[in-house]
């Protein structure tokens, strides 16, 4: 605590400030800072996030892989029609997508986000504790 009085002190706070300023600074015990930082940053495990990410991602990945394996031709045909439509002067187009594919893609994205959060949390913890 500085001996200089802050400018925003109220008159009744000055005595307390002088009293606390008079206390000589003391060295903190060895390891104190690390212990505090562990408490602050120590959301100890993000393992459960990896579990959630895996549980959500694996069925979606399996479904999408199965879709590509069994109905890959439909994807290719739709892509081909898209490219053809982009170069022609058609004024209409018909589109359909299986809703389960949408759900699988959304779950895959959600699982990837959870995994990204877990990996960035680990990186943040490492960088904070190594400082």
């Amino acid at each position: 605590m500085s001996l200089r009085e802050p400018l925003d002190l109220e008159p009744q706070e000055r005595a307390t400030h002088r009293l606390l300023s008079a206390v000589p600074p003391q060295t903190l015990p060895l390891g104190f800072r690390d212990a505090v930082m562990r408490r602050v940053t120590g959301d100890p495990s993000v393992g459960w996030e990896w579990v959630v990410a895996a549980v959500l991602a694996l069925p979606s990945l399996a479904f999408l892989a199965f879709q590509v394996a069994t109905r890959g031709g439909e994807f290719a045909a739709a892509l081909n029609n898209m490219l053809l439509a982009a170069t022609s002067d058609t004024s209409q187009a018909f589109f359909f997508v299986d809703g389960l594919t949408v759900i699988a893609l959304a779950l895959l994205g959600l699982a990837s986000l959870v995994a990204a959060h877990a990996s960035t949390a680990i990186a943040t913890q490492r960088s904070t504790t190594s400082r």
Binding site: S60, E74, S88, F95, F96
Partner: peptide, 29 residues
């Protein structure tokens, strides 16, 4: 995940039928 897996499994099974008429993705002008 269990609930969605059951739905995905049913969808895969239904889509893999030889008489499945509706494609998974469709775009046509």
């Amino acid at each position: 995940a269990v609930g969605v897996s059951a739905l995905l499994l049913a969808g895969s099974f239904a889509g893999a039928q030889p008489e499945a008429t509706r494609p998974g993705v469709y775009f046509d002008p």
